[in-house]
């Protein structure tokens, strides 16, 4: 996987400092993103590498990768990239919420792969804070996408409380 040429982190255009490492390749001097299989297999060696460590979670087709398999390693990660191989494959929405809500993951949660304009606000609601956008998507378009559907009936991983609770001034 190539570094993103159109990356937004926390609403700001950013340079992609991460290198995606193939499973059979050596780490590089710098922040490295590895697969879930490699993280499980080489965890000690990866921890000894003196640079930030990242993970890419693949959504798969028949089955996706299970983030629960590496639950005890999450503290070592600065970045988790969640892959959307095609827009229809929405496993990553659940993966993001599990990371934010079950594991209280505080690092960068980045959507990579096929990220559609009309999905951005849902991704944000599920806990993503970074997006590898399509190369032709302008910052204005990104901002417009994030203003879509400002209302929400239900709580998720963002700050919106959900109308069902808002009506009664209750914390969701």
């Amino acid at each position: 996987m190539e570094p993103s040429k159109n990356l937004i982190i926390d609403g700001v255009i950013a340079e992609d400092i991460w290198t995606y490492i193939e499973d059979d390749s050596a780490l590089v001097d710098g922040p490295c993103v590895v697969s879930l299989a490699r993280l499980k297999q080489d965890f000690e060696a990866l921890q000894a590498h003196p640079f930030p460590l990242g993970l890419v979670v693949r959504a798969g087709t028949k089955q996706g990768e299970d983030i629960n398999d590496v639950a005890n390693m999450l503290d070592a990660l600065s970045l988790i990239a969640i892959d959307f191989p095609v827009y229809r494959n929405g496993r990553g929405f659940s993966t993001a919420r599990v990371l934010r809500e079950d594991y209280d993951f505080k690092g960068e949660l980045r959507a990579v792969g096929e990220v559609l304009f009309d999905q951005l606000v849902f991704m944000q609601r599920c806990g993503f804070n970074a997006y590898a956008l399509p190369e032709n998507m302008s910052p204005d378009t990104y901002n417009q996408a994030m203003r879509m559907l400002p209302g929400a009936y239900q709580p998720a991983s963002d700050q919106r409380r959900g109308i069902i609770w808002q009506r009664h001034n209750q914390k969701s």
Partner: peptide, 16 residues
């Protein structure tokens, strides 16, 4: 009706 509201524009379950 409760389910209608909860499921409307559900951010996690719109690409099942």
């Amino acid at each position: 009706e409760v389910i209608r509201q909860w499921s409307t524009f559900h951010p996690e379950f719109s690409f099942l």
